[in-house]
Design a protein around this nucleic acid. Structure first.
Lengths: 242, 242
DNA sequence: TTATTCCTATTTGTAGGACAAATATAATAA
DNA sequence: TTATTATATTTGTCCTACAAATAGGAATAA
């Protein structure tokens, strides 16, 4: 076992069993609902103690890949592609570098769904956005109350109808909120400057583009709406290179 | 334990221990490199058998949150935000619906990083893209050989310098490749039609926009480059609604 | 015949003990 | 002081036993 290491961590029997179980599931072409052999059988087949097998199965259970039932045994499920992220997407667990990556990722994604939004939006969606914008609480310098910010932007994600994108945005929202709070003092002067230059884009501005169906104007304004993050990230990246 | 279920799955002691460990790590404000109490101590503190604790710790190990060392004990690490995705991002594990979500996610993301690319790109990057485009192998109807397709697009991701985005694209690439292969017969007629309408955008076209610095033209052309996916996804989504 | 209830067998979940394996640290020698 | 060796410590693995929770079959009632 001495020579079996990844990232200087020994590759334990549990790691190996986990990999073998994944392989088994894939090669047997098992589908959600399929049963797997019971623990005793699997442990014997893999030549490990039941405890080791259980540790590996526990991992699969966490991934959502299996459900376990007394008597029936283990049943396959489709894993959640973002299930792992859900567990670790916490500002207390991640480095600042990763948090900034996520912020940038989120900005890029929202710019990227613009075409999808315009393609898929309904009259009802627009009405809902109107309500959100009307009820939105604006603090100073185009800062929105957290709930207003979340309501508007998550509605945009919902319009895509893409469950993975929608779930992604929900998962990372605590990170976005945290970063905005932590670096409030950095964001404030940027915002004031943007305000002076008349480069503030409100939710109402964005909604106006949506209503007129001008996706290019929407993208430009959204890019501008997020300029505060781009400027902030550029500054942080510059500092971190020194 | 009868009343403690989530999604009709019993919440086991292992689930509870996992949650408590995560809570402990967060509330103790532990950082990468910090040590945790050893297994015996933790098991006693949590009032569970060592086996149960080990199952929960095994999960944390999988997430990359802890490293385990004999004598030293367990040491905290920063988890990889995409580590869980890496394990399940496999076409053999995911439903078709999820695969299509991922395809759409990827398209949106690449559209979304356009501003970042133009902001961050260097002369060297452009030269590398030129080499990639020159060496690119084009099949018929603007289909690129897999390696050429991957080389061009992954270079774009690399230009962002955002490690999370870069890793994301790598992780989902097998999915993208699988979907393109599986639905080849669907893509072909769309491609032929786009070719007739002169709506084919090549990597060389995109590179030209990059070189002239026209981000809006780039976005339009990229949207067009991905039109085949948008049309395909719309058709699949229409069918699945009936 | 069908529906409901009860019972049994089966499997997972948990506990505890033992010992091997791999360090990390302390002690000793050069 | 540095290098080597020995020891203590902790994780990794194995085993046994039994509790808990079904799942499915059998029996009974309508």
């Amino acid at each position: 076992m001495k020579d079996l290491k990844i990232n200087n961590q020994p590759v334990t029997l549990v790691d190996q069993v986990e990999a073998k179980l994944l392989e088994y599931i894939k090669t047997e072409d098992l589908n959600p609902g399929s049963s797997m052999p019971n623990e005793q059988t699997l442990a014997k087949a893999l030549g490990v103690a039941r405890g080791v097998l259980r540790e590996a199965l526990s991992r699969l259970r966490m991934l959502g890949l299996i459900e376990t039932r007394t008597q029936r045994g283990m049943v396959l499920k489709e894993p959640s592609i973002l299930g792992g992220m859900l567990r670790v997407a916490d500002p207390l667990l991640l480095s600042e570098l990763s948090l900034l990556d996520v912020l940038e990722f989120r900005v890029a994604l929202e710019l990227g769904i613009s075409s999808d939004i315009f393609r898929k939006i309904t009259k009802k969606d627009i009405e809902e956005l109107e309500v959100i914008v009307e009820k939105g609480i604006i603090l100073e310098h185009n800062e929105y109350a957290l709930a207003s910010e979340y309501a508007f932007h998550s509605k945009l994600y919902e319009i895509t109808g893409n469950q993975t994108i929608i779930q992604f945005q929900k998962i990372i929202n605590p990170i976005i909120t945290f970063v905005k709070d932590k670096f409030e003092e950095n964001f404030k002067p940027i915002n004031i400057e943007l305000e002076k230059e008349n480069r503030i884009v409100t939710h109402a501005d964005l909604l106006e583009c949506i209503k007129t169906g001008d996706v290019n104007a929407y993208r430009d304004k959204l890019d501008c709406h997020f300029l505060i993050y781009s400027i902030f990230l550029n500054e942080k990246r510059k500092l971190s290179k020194k």
